[in-house]
C-alpha cells in the first residue's frame, strides 16, 4: 500500500507533503530507541515512533523506511522537519497510539 493511501486510511496528517508519497509500504516497525530501529527496521517499512528530533531523519534515511509515522499527536521539531524536507523523508502524524495505528496498518498491508 502506498504512503498516501495509508495516510488517508489512518486519517493521518501528512506533515510535509510532496515527497515520496507514492512509495510502497511493505512492512511496519515500531520503536523509539534509535539503535534498535537501526538494526531492525527494514527497507520500505512504515516506522511508528514518538521520537520527533532530527536524528529520526538520519535513521529513516539510512534504513530506507518508506515513511515515519509520529503517533500520539507528536509534532516533529523544526530541525527534524527541515531535515526531512531536505532528505525527502515523508512524515505522517496521527493521534492514535502506536498500538492502534499498528493494528490498522496490519489490516491494510
Amino acid at each position: 500500500m502506498l504512503v498516501k493511501d495509508i495516510a488517508e486510511k489512518l486519517q493521518a496528517e501528512i506533515v510535509n507533503p510532496g515527497h515520496h508519497l507514492n512509495r510502497e509500504i511493505k512492512g511496519c516497525y515500531i520503536g523509539d530507541l534509535l539503535s534498535w530501529v537501526m538494526s531492525n527496521a527494514q527497507e520500505d517499512d512504515i516506522w511508528i515512533t514518538i521520537m520527533s528530533n532530527v536524528n529520526v531523519v538520519a535513521v529513516a534515511t539510512l534504513t530506507d523506511v518508506a515513511c515515519v509515522l509520529l503517533c500520539e499527536n507528536v509534532d516533529p521539531d523544526d530541525n527534524c522537519l527541515k531535515r526531512a524536507n531536505e532528505q525527502g523523508i515523508s512524515i505522517l502524524k496521527t493521534k492514535l497510539t502506536a498500538y492502534e495505528a499498528a493494528v490498522k496498518i496490519g489490516n491494510l498491508l
Binding site: D32, L33, L34, S35, W36, V37, M38, S39, M51, N53, N55, V56
Partner: peptide, 14 residues
C-alpha cells in the same frame, strides 16, 4: 533523543 540503549557497539559487531 533516543540514544543510550547500549546497542550501538553490539550492532557494529553484528
Amino acid at each position: 533523543l533516543g540514544f543510550g540503549a547500549g546497542m550501538g557497539l553490539p550492532n557494529i559487531k553484528k
